[in-house]
Every structure is written in structure tokens, then in C-alpha cells.
Design a protein around this nucleic acid. Structure first.
Lengths: 154, 154
DNA sequence: GGATATTGATCAGTATGCTGACGATCAGTA
DNA sequence: TACTGATCGTCAGCATACTGATCAATATCC
């Protein structure tokens, strides 16, 4: 009988579980209330002002139906704004607020420290190798999930 | 600005996302309706007949509040049974049914094939190395999540 | 033995993630 | 221009995951 520890699927779930727990603990310790998903969305909105939700979803590989709720919460916390687009009346343009910018600036070092904690069992060299292998496996499987990573369009 | 691809947390989420999608697609193709979580729970119940829910949760690193719903669905599908324990009247003893055994037998090769698909971008050597590094990182972070892995007690 | 602490299971509440559907809108074409 | 198909955002519904609480039952300690 195959052990759980021989199943990449199980290891993936467990690694992700720990990563989320560490992220939330560090962020809360620093006095913030932001999930990993919300952080990634906010950082991506800041880097791509005025983008629409489908583009945002593609940039961070979220499902477009999940984005709706995430943005709801960012807006509700006053970190982002959602307004109808003039170019395409179906679309919503997303913008980070000043408050969002402040939060992002203060929280980024915390997030980076969390990333180090997630890998605390590995040497620097092992960490690099793990990330390289994950990137490679992810690239090969990108199209297999409903929410693949997509480049921004012009 | 740090790229998403430099964040182990983001890579963890993405890898897990693909792993779940592959698992569900393969299992559905084979004509079954079972999630990764339900599969792991069912296989563990079979390997440890009569175990209680907390022990099961520890063996596969689930939160105990999540287990309740997972077992509900296994029972509802007729794959497992839940009955009050005689030794400890707070506890529920879990048992796999004949139907559960049949399902598990037929589905196991499908699950193993899914594991190969998840790693299809990597060579055999790289796959081994990825799993080794994940195991190491997970071991170091085990206590950081609310649902750490636990050995079965005597 | 009896007070206290702990434990097993569940629940309510919240946040991802997904499937499949829908209305509104846009783009391309006959 | 009218039609057709695709796209954007949202929704309902389901399944993980977690926090924190509660109830019942067991363990522990004095």
C-alpha cells in the first residue's frame, strides 16, 4: 500500500496548508487582517492599475468566480475600488486605494518573512531547487486547472 | 517587486490547485465521484478499521472540524459507516463498507495515474527530488498548521 | 469521591475554489 | 443592420479549511 508521503497530491495539499497557516499567523501578528489570496490580488491590482477582473484572475491563476468575492472583501475593507469600465460596459476596472497602498507597503516585509518560515526546514540551495521544480511542474500542468495562469493582454 | 513565482506560498497554492484538478478529472473519467480528501479518508479508514475521527484527522492532517463533513459524505455515498464507540461514548468508530472496498480497489490505479500526471513535467529523478524536498519542508512546518500530522496511538 | 481539566464530535460563521448557469454586452459576420 | 457567438461579471450550489464555541463524556488531581 502506497503511503501518503509518496503521493505528490498529498504533499501538495500539506505544503499549501502549512503555507497558508504561516501566512495568516505572521500577518495577524503584525496586526493585519489579510488572506494570501487577498494579498496577491491587491499586489497585482497595484502593479496593473485599472485592470479588469478576468485579467486579474489570469495573472494570479484564480477562478473568475472566486475573484468576485475576493474583490468584494478588498472593497469592503477599503483597500481597493471597483468601478464600471468606460471602454467595456461589461467589465469592472480595479484600482488600489491609498489605504490599500499603505497596507501593502507595511505588510510586504511580513509576507516575505512568512515565505522564509515556510521553507525553514530547507537550506538556501534546497529552497531554490524546490521552487525550481515546483515552477517546472506547474508550467507543465498549467492548462489542467480551470484557472490557468495567463499573461496580461495589451 | 518580487514576482509571484518567487513566492513559495504562491507556488504551493498553484501546485495544489493543479493536483486537485487532475485528480478530479481522472477520477471522473473513470466513472467515479470522489474528491482527493474523501479518497485519503477512505483509504485510511480501510487501513485502520474502527479508528475514531480525531485519529483519522491526525493520520492525514485534516482539521477535526473538516472531517465531520467529509465522513458525512462518505457515509451518505454508502462507502463508510460511523457508529458510536463502546470504549468511549464520545467517540465514533469508522468502518469501510464492502461498497467502499470495491470503490477503493477500482479507483486506486486511477489515483496513481493521476499522481504521475501531476508530475508530468518532471523527470523521474526530479520527481523524487521534489517529493523529498516537500517532505522535508512539511516535516519542519508540521506544527505550524492547526491540523498537524499525527501518528496513530496504540 | 468530587472538582477540574481535557477530549471527541459537532456547530455557526467565514473564506477559498470549483461547476454550471445566467444576463448584459461586445465583436464578427452575413 | 440583424444575427451569432464569445466574453465579463455574477449567482446558486457544493466541498474543503479554518476559528471559536458548545455539549457530552472521560481523565486527572486533590
Amino acid at each position: 500500500m502506497k503511503d501518503n508521503n509518496d503521493m505528490p497530491g498529498h504533499l501538495a495539499r500539506r505544503f499549501q496548508q502549512i503555507a497558508v497557516a504561516v501566512f495568516l499567523a505572521e500577518v495577524e501578528d503584525a496586526g493585519f487582517d489579510l488572506t494570501p489570496v487577498q494579498y496577491a490580488a491587491l499586489a497585482t491590482i497595484k502593479a496593473n492599475p485599472g485592470l479588469d477582473q478576468v485579467t486579474l484572475a489570469g495573472l494570479i491563476a484564480y477562478d473568475r468566480t472566486t475573484i468576485t468575492g475576493v474583490i468584494d472583501r478588498l472593497v469592503q475593507k477599503g483597500l481597493a475600488e471597483r468601478r464600471p469600465s468606460n471602454r467595456d460596459r461589461r467589465a469592472r476596472e480595479l484600482e488600489i486605494t491609498d489605504e490599500g497602498r499603505r497596507t501593502l507597503r507595511k505588510i510586504t516585509p511580513v509576507v516575505e518573512s512568512a515565505q522564509r518560515i515556510i521553507l525553514r526546514g530547507l537550506s538556501a540551495k534546497e529552497s531554490e531547487e524546490l521552487m525550481r521544480l515546483l515552477r517546472k511542474a506547474i508550467a507543465a500542468g498549467n492548462e489542467l486547472s480551470r484557472a490557468p495562469l495567463r499573461d496580461a493582454q495589451a
